[in-house]
Simulated scan of single mutants.
Amino acid sequence: MIYFVFILAAVVVVISAVYLNQFGDVISKKSSLSGAAVGTFLIAGATSLPELTTSLTAVYIDNPDIAVGNMLGSNVFNLLILASMDIIYRRQRLFQKVNNKENIPSASIGLVFLLIIIFSLWMPGSIEIFGVGIEMIVIVLLYIFSMKFISGGESEQEEEELTKDYSLKAAVIGFIIASVIVFISGSALSVSGDRMAEASGLDASFVGSFLIAASTSLPELVAVYAAFRLANYNMAIGSILGSNLFNIQLLALTDLLYREGAILTSVQSSHIFIACLGLVMTLIMIFLLIRPASMRSHWRYAAPSLLMTLIYFVASYVLF
């Protein structure tokens, strides 16, 4: 029964999050909230709401491993989405058709965030300010400072084709309803994942990092697939890298609401392997962005993405 609840909650999260993204895009374009910065924040918040509700519920039921694993695992799964799409559409060579100057800063900042998290997980303790680890405060400050280096100007124009034409009133109502559904289903996903870990004997960090993370990242998969179908490769890469940065900020929010101390000091050491996996995959992603366009063979071009996919599944098997 608990497995049925988990699968049902995952399906509801995916469907409602896709609508949440559509409604949020309409609101950002048809209201006084329009503008690249606010629009990007609204869409990023909408897309990441499943991760947020799942992690907050995990904190509420006192399972920080699922909370941290969900955020780190979602970022890793997002990179797997890009690698998989790059392999499937290898003839289009998406990384050679995007504006690398817009995407390299996001990937580089994400790399710095992961280095900070790995160092914090490796260290035996943490300096806390009002119960929040200093590493999370540093990450938030770096994110705010780095926003001026991250371009968001083109994303709204490029996303317009993906959005259905709703009225502003309908979009607001739909956004609220979808948010409530995501909150409820995300909570059910976290609780059922916790029970599933207990019943099956699976490691809680594995459940959070792979099973729940994959479920909450499926809306990004739908959005990226739609962007690929429209040959809008710049939006596909930018949305994933931006979502990963936003997810780390949600991890900081989770730490703020976790009242047992710095959350990274309360989780299993296995999370450092998930963070290192994200670090390696991000490095490969940066290589793909800076690599010169000189590959004649389609499979030779796709080799880094194949390597990224292989690393992900090997790491999943080892942790399982």
Rank of each mutant, 00 (worst) to 15 (best):
A10T: 10
V12E: 10
V13W: 01
L20D: 03
L20T: 04
N21F: 10
N21H: 09
Q22T: 03
G24C: 12
D25T: 14
K29W: 06
S32C: 07
L33G: 14
L33S: 13
G35T: 12
G35F: 13
A37L: 12
V38L: 10
F41L: 15
I43A: 09
I43R: 14
S48E: 14
E51R: 07
L52F: 04
L52K: 00
L56R: 07
V59E: 09
D62C: 05
V68N: 08
N70Y: 03
L72R: 11
G73V: 04
F77M: 14
L79T: 08
L79V: 14
L80Q: 04
I81S: 03
L82P: 00
A83S: 09
M85T: 05
D86L: 06
Y89F: 13
Y89N: 00
Q92W: 01
V98L: 12
S106R: 14
S108T: 11
S108G: 02
I109L: 10
G110T: 02
I116G: 08
I116R: 01
I117S: 07
I117W: 02
I117Y: 02
S120G: 14
L121E: 13
W122E: 15
M123L: 12
P124I: 11
V132A: 05
G133H: 06
G133S: 10
I134R: 00
E135D: 15
E135W: 11
M136E: 12
V140C: 09
L142C: 08
I144D: 03
S146Y: 01
I150S: 05
I150F: 02
G152E: 06
E154W: 00
S155M: 13
S155N: 15
S155Y: 08
E160I: 01
E161L: 11
L162V: 04
K164M: 05
L168H: 03
A170M: 07
F175V: 07
I176M: 12
I176W: 01
I177K: 09
A178M: 08
S179M: 08
V180C: 07
I181D: 06
V182T: 12
I184A: 15
S185E: 10
G186Y: 01
L189I: 11
L189S: 12
S190H: 04
R195N: 15
M196G: 11
A199G: 11
S200V: 00
G201D: 06
D203G: 03
V207R: 06
S209T: 07
I212A: 13
I212W: 08
L218M: 08
A223L: 08
A226V: 06
A231R: 15
I237L: 10
I237C: 05
I240P: 04
I240H: 09
I240A: 11
G242E: 04
G242L: 02
S243I: 02
F246V: 07
Q249I: 15
A252N: 10
L253F: 13
D255K: 06
L257W: 06
I263P: 15
Q268W: 00
F273C: 10
A275F: 02
A275H: 03
C276F: 07
V280I: 15
M281V: 05
T282Q: 11
M285V: 04
L289D: 13
P292Y: 02
P292I: 09
A293W: 00
R296S: 12
R296M: 03
W299E: 12
W299D: 14
Y301N: 04
A302Q: 06
A302K: 02
L307A: 11
L307I: 13
M308A: 13
I311M: 12
A315I: 05
A315P: 05
S316A: 11
Y317P: 03
